[in-house]
């Protein structure tokens, strides 16, 4: 059985006097024990809202969440909020995009790390401080005892993200959700952070849900990939089939829009035309149709169904891409 099963998750934002906004529209996917799953899509496609919803961090009267999220046999959406709070940090943890604003600026790093240890592992005083130093060491922060006394603004961006990762893995959670963990960092640090995440996931057997818009990150890290568009999963496949034979025109467009080193000099980039604003409602047809090169009149005959092609390779398209140019070569870090 899967560790996390998300089934038909919908998130709707309501506002008086305005039409409802359905940010996540029936998203389903699973994450197995120790597996790395990617959630990919451009800005505004519902990636972050999905992750916040399944952590139960979307609160307020104007948010409606439907569907089901089962973690280790427990239905998270029906849990009492205090029970959910006990699970967060100990069983499920999350890393955010901006490491500077995710740390409290007036509290030393050490206090913020020991706080988690006290909360979930009942460690106090010297024991908590020692464990915090061990954690910082583990995520590759040199001179951890000194760093524990420092404030977030005294650390570099990469160091802060490492500290946040240390806090997230402090209680060896079974699922780690990383919401664009490398977006705010520069490229060399990005690689280091991804390497660190991979190591931690391998050594602790933690499952990782990687949320990103960066296909390079996905290529190097993820076992399974879900491509999101306008709140729906439009293509889901294992890494190799997705990169070798993307089926949904949107996935194809994403892959083609990556600048290629082997392209002839001066060749223009190939963006996906239009923007998310051109979308039509899913009820009327394929939301991507106005931007799609394979668009036909059938695309407007109601919402396209999810088709399962090969084992596990699913796509939501009536005119799937079948003939392929040689697929974009993205070097995977381990060469697989």
């Amino acid at each position: 059985m899967s560790l996390l099963t998300v089934d038909e998750l919908t998130v709707t934002f309501t506002q008086r006097g305005k039409p409802d906004v359905r940010a996540v529209d029936g998203v389903s996917f699973t994450v197995d024990q120790g597996e790395v799953v990617g959630l990919v899509g451009e800005s505004g496609c519902g990636k972050s809202v999905t992750s916040l919803a399944l952590m139960r961090l979307l609160s307020g009267r104007n948010v409606k969440i439907g569907g089901s999220v089962v973690f280790d046999g427990i239905e998270l959406l029906k849990l009492r909020s205090e029970e959910m709070r006990d699970l967060r940090g100990s069983q499920l943890a999350m890393i955010f995009q901006d490491p500077l604003s995710s740390l409290n600026p007036v509290v030393p790093i050490g206090v913020q790390v020991t706080e988690i240890l006290t909360r979930h592992r009942k460690l106090r005083g010297e024991a908590a401080r020692k464990e915090a130093a061990v954690l910082l060491e583990k995520v590759g922060i040199p001179d951890p005892t000194r760093r524990l006394r420092e404030y977030p603004h005294q650390m570099s961006g990469g160091m802060r993200q490492r500290a946040l990762i240390a806090m997230a893995v402090a209680c060896a959670p079974r699922l780690l959700i990383a919401d664009e963990p490398t977006t705010a960092l520069d490229v060399t640090i990005q690689a280091q952070i991804l390497e660190l995440l991979k190591e931690l996931v391998d050594s602790q057997g933690t499952a990782l849900l990687m949320i990103t818009h960066d296909l390079g990150v996905v290529a190097g890290l993820c076992d399974d990939i879900n491509v999101l568009y306008a709140g729906k999963v439009v293509e889901a496949a294992a890494r190799r089939p997705l990169f070798a034979a993307p089926t949904h025109p949107y996935s194809v467009g994403l892959l083609n829009s990556i600048p290629r080193l082997d392209a002839p000099r001066g060749e223009p980039l190939k963006p996906i035309r239009g923007s998310v604003n051109d979308n039509i409602a899913w009820a009327d047809g394929c939301a991507f149709a106005p931007r799609c090169d394979h668009y036909t009149i059938e695309c407007l005959q109601g919402p396209p169904a999810l088709t399962e092609a090969l084992t596990g390779h699913r796509y939501r398209c009536v005119n799937p891409v079948t003939t392929h140019e040689p697929p974009a070569v993205i070097a995977t870090e381990d060469g697989r």
């Binding site: 952590m55 709070r85 940090g89 604003s101 995710s102 706080e115 988690i116 909360r119 946040l164 997230a168």
Partner: peptide, 15 residues
């Protein structure tokens, strides 16, 4: 954001 992050790690509300 840091309050959201603290929530995501299960820190108690009072804390």
């Amino acid at each position: 954001d840091y309050v959201l992050a603290a929530n995501a790690l299960g820190v108690k509300r009072r804390r």
